[in-house]
């Protein structure tokens, strides 16, 4: 399964497309780098949490960070195993800039047999100027199974 020319992350764009809620908010896969796995989201008026300022709802970041963290665990596993979020902590550092695309970069910095520990950041341009930071733990729920049809 893990031959050098293909990795499970090749599936990430399809996984995001196959997740109804990610589709509903308009999330898209960006790619992988040294910093981790990245996803993006285009700014949309109906995702605003504060009508006075036009800032995206904190809840939009919650979903993006949760999903990005999950992808980071799968990237580290490099195969499909069912995973579930155990907990997710988010620090909101500043408001997202209205009109700008949101980017999430997540990295699974430690993987044990049953748990993946992940850190993630949300930003518009550079990770050095974060909107929010997340810390999450995922439980890997069972042995490898086949990838479900998307």
């Amino acid at each position: 399964m893990n031959n050098p020319t293909s990795s499970f992350s090749d599936m990430f764009a399809a996984i995001i497309d196959g997740t109804p809620y990610m589709q509903a908010i308009g999330a898209y896969y960006i790619g992988k780098s040294q910093d981790g796995v990245s996803m993006g989201l285009a700014y949309r008026d109906d995702l605003v949490g504060d009508p006075q300022s036009g800032v995206l709802a904190g809840g939009v970041l919650t979903a993006m960070l949760d999903h990005g963290c999950g992808l980071a665990v799968w990237d580290r596993l490099d195969e499909f195993k069912p995973i579930a979020t155990l907990d997710l902590r988010i620090d909101y550092m500043r408001a997202a800039k209205p009109g700008k695309d949101l980017i999430i970069t997540a990295k699974c910095y430690k993987l044990t047999r049953s748990i993946g520990f992940v850190r993630a950041f949300a930003y518009e341009e550079t990770v050095d100027d974060p909107i929010a930071a997340a810390q999450a733990a995922f439980v890997i729920t069972s042995a490898p199974t086949t990838v479900p049809a998307l």
Partner: peptide
């Protein structure tokens, strides 16, 4: 249906629950 995060189970997306 748009709130689904795992179409196999199916289960709500964790991010929706957090947001809510």
């Amino acid at each position: 249906d748009k709130l689904i995060g795992n179409p196999v189970l199916p289960a709500l997306h964790g991010g929706v629950i957090g947001a809510f």
